[in-house]
């Protein structure tokens, strides 16, 4: 790791101020950033630790509206009783991230700000039609994820929470990379008042995306059988030593089918 200056923010406003230092970066759970710094692939001059800010933590469920603080850990999302009732699919998804020790530290805000093309949360938020709340504005998930490791966040902007309306039905199915345990393909499907959404992570060359083919088929009938003969195009999908684009295309269809079956179960 290169030399770095560590700051512990005492408030969101303090964090925003500290972020003006050199090439500063926010540090939340650090589960992606610190490994990247250890291998010298990331070299921020300053780290602004927001993980202990109480304002950024916790899960609120009010009616169908769910709000999750940005520094809420994956473990806390997976284990929250209110959330497990309101949107069990999201709690389940959080329980599939990394491993138990990673889930204790990694946070929802950190995950979506990083927008790793194989991370789970981007698919969930996209499929849930969530809103990303920052210290400056609110951004719809559809507008937030902008390609590999890119988001709509502007310099100095800090995610404080995400919020969404719990859908009637939802599920997430993940096919893990055998080595890294990230998603080779993860499909999050929802059926809510605005219709069906199916978001795919791990597979797209430009990161998380909504599968038009799957959404169109499921709009006709939200049932695994509706995806029977579906052909997901391999074009635009990643190919690497673990999975070809064709294999990923197949997995998208399979995971989508299984997710719909789980959502209906």
């Amino acid at each position: 790791m290169y030399s770095v200056n560590y700051h512990r923010a005492v408030s969101v406003a303090d964090a925003a101020k500290l972020l003006k230092n050199g090439d500063a970066k926010l540090l939340s759970g650090g589960m992606t950033l610190i490994p990247a710094m250890k291998t010298r692939l990331a070299a921020p001059s300053d780290l602004v630790d927001v993980s202990r800010l109480k304002d950024l933590q916790g899960i609120k469920v009010s009616g169908k509206t769910v709000t999750i603080g940005a520094a809420t850990t994956h473990y806390d999302v997976s284990a929250d009783d209110k959330l497990r009732k309101a949107c069990p699919a999201l709690a389940h998804m959080a329980s599939l991230i990394g491993d138990p020790a990673v889930r204790y530290k990694g946070t929802i805000g950190g995950s979506i700000a990083n927008n790793d093309p194989a991370a789970d949360y981007p698919a969930a938020l996209l499929a849930l039609g969530a809103t990303i709340i920052t210290n400056k504005r609110e951004i719809a998930a559809d507008k937030f994820f902008k390609g590999l490791f890119e988001t709509a966040l502007k310099e100095g902007e800090i995610i404080t929470a995400v919020s969404f309306t719990a859908p009637a039905k939802a599920a997430y199915e993940k096919f893990r990379n055998p080595a890294s345990r990230y998603a080779i393909v993860g499909v999050f499907v929802t059926k809510g008042k605005d219709g069906v959404r199916a978001a795919v992570t791990g597979a797209g060359e430009d990161g998380v995306f909504r599968s038009r083919e799957i959404e169109a088929a499921l709009a006709k009938a939200f049932d695994a059988s509706a995806l029977g003969g579906i052909k997901v195009p391999a074009k635009g999908l990643m190919s690497d030593i673990h999975a070809s684009a064709d294999y990923r295309a197949n997995l998208i269809a399979v995971m989508a089918k299984r997710a719909v079956a789980a959502a209906n179960a």
Binding site: R8, L27, I34, P35, T39, D99, P100, A101, Y104, K105
Partner: peptide, 29 residues
């Protein structure tokens, strides 16, 4: 390992088992 995967570094911080190779000492203060 260098990638926060092997778990040989796991300790309990405030009652939770975390990877001490993926946390700055300053963060844990």
């Amino acid at each position: 390992c260098d990638t926060s995967q092997c778990g040989t570094c796991v300790v309990h911080v405030d009652g939770r088992a975390v990877k001490s190779c993926t946390m700055l000492a300053a963060q844990a203060s």
